[in-house]
Write a protein that binds this DNA or RNA. Structure first.
Lengths: 219, 219
DNA sequence: ACCTGAACACCGTTCAAGT
DNA sequence: ACCTGAACACCGTTCAAGT
């Protein structure tokens, strides 16, 4: 209860405020100056807590990942397939919650404790299924990639909902008529209704688990 | 050969210059003002060609995708597995060539002609393997997601190579010791040497093709 | 149609100075 | 240790005006 050496505000307060601005006003509002103002601070005071804007972004990634329950994913009583699926779904949900998540995630390596904890659980789970350490690491990476990739495509599609740029009127435009793509057009509505995240993840896990010699793969 | 109505510069020139700046000086250099200066134009003149910076970014995505040979991927003489693999590899190579590619790709929906052409080939290929249109669309989306996801993870890792932010000295830091993740640490070098892109893609395609009733899946 | 110049409302980051 | 104020070198975008 003794008063700590640091006054007024903590790193966690700054990250929380940054997320609030991200939700309320979008990624552009997540600026050193904007967050500082929201906290009643001067922009320069921010550099007491984070060495750069990028350091703040990476702290936000860690906070985002910290809300995922890795403990449940480590519970060996539940079959592995169910645990990876839950983990991937949770990660996907967190990434989908904020439009700017992809920029956050690519702000630096996923090497914070929460990111490493997630990787650890994934590699451990695949290893327990009979994979070699190298295959388990590649499998974990593939699952990360799939989830991040779906999040990226989702984010890109949402980005287009507001303000579509129009082609510049004359015949020299780079864009051509989209009616030339019948298969894409025919399946666009179906893809929108059910984006197939779960289905694709199941197929990926099918392929990954079929790689283990003594196949224990789930349905 | 008659002189066109538009003088000095074309949309394609602007996109080319933007890519040159991206390669030479990184994503931060791809600004309306920066590209304009490199072309000897005033920033405001840029708005004659593109309605916004985002429109320029999306044109860059299309130019990036235009270098992928979709024709070869449509050649039914070659087995489908080989064609998807080549297509995904080419896309991955293009995305890896520029550090800022992920920001580009998430600047809006992948709905330009080149992006749609790629989707069309993917959906068509999976359909020809015996998939329902819906499954083929989901499979195409899964392949996109996997490739974009690997590119995102790669970009994130490269972003960390320059300028690592240090934790802020005291015990209240958000970051903990990375030595607590033995599996991740043990496989980190292997993952760096061979990122498993091809292996993971093969597993994904295994899983996807195993979904077709009369299985024609390749090794 | 294409381009300029001036202006508006912002950025991240550094530095010297205060307490 | 934490914070302020002033400054530097930038942004995207709009508007009125020129040719």
């Amino acid at each position: 209860m003794r008063p700590g050496p640091r006054r007024s505000i903590s790193q966690a307060d700054i990250v929380d405020t940054a997320f609030r601005l991200l939700e309320e006003k979008g990624f552009a509002a997540v600026s050193i100056r904007g967050v500082a103002a929201a906290l009643g601070l001067t922009p320069t005071a921010m550099y007491t807590y984070f060495a750069s804007k990028n350091a703040l972004l990476r702290a936000m990634v860690e906070q985002l990942l910290s809300t995922i329950d890795v403990g449940a994913a480590s519970d060996a009583e539940v079959i592995w397939r169910g645990r990876v699926t839950a983990l991937a779904g949770a990660l996907r949900t967190r990434l989908a919650a904020h439009a700017g998540s992809m920029v956050l995630v690519t702000s630096g390596p996923l090497d914070g404790p929460n990111a490493l904890g997630l990787s650890e659980v994934l590699i451990g789970g695949f290893t327990a299924e009979g994979m070699t350490p190298a295959d388990a690491a590649h499998s974990a990476r593939a699952v990360w990639a799939y989830v991040l990739g779906i999040a990226a495509v989702d984010a890109a599609e949402r980005a287009g909902e507001l303000g579509h740029a129009r082609p510049p009127s004359d015949g020299e435009t780079l864009w051509t008529d989209a009616a030339a793509f019948p298969l894409t057009a025919a399946t666009a509505d179906a893809a929108r209704a059910d984006d197939g995240f779960g289905w694709g993840l199941d197929r990926l896990l099918d392929g990954l688990t079929s790689a283990v010699p003594a196949a224990l793969s789930a349905p």
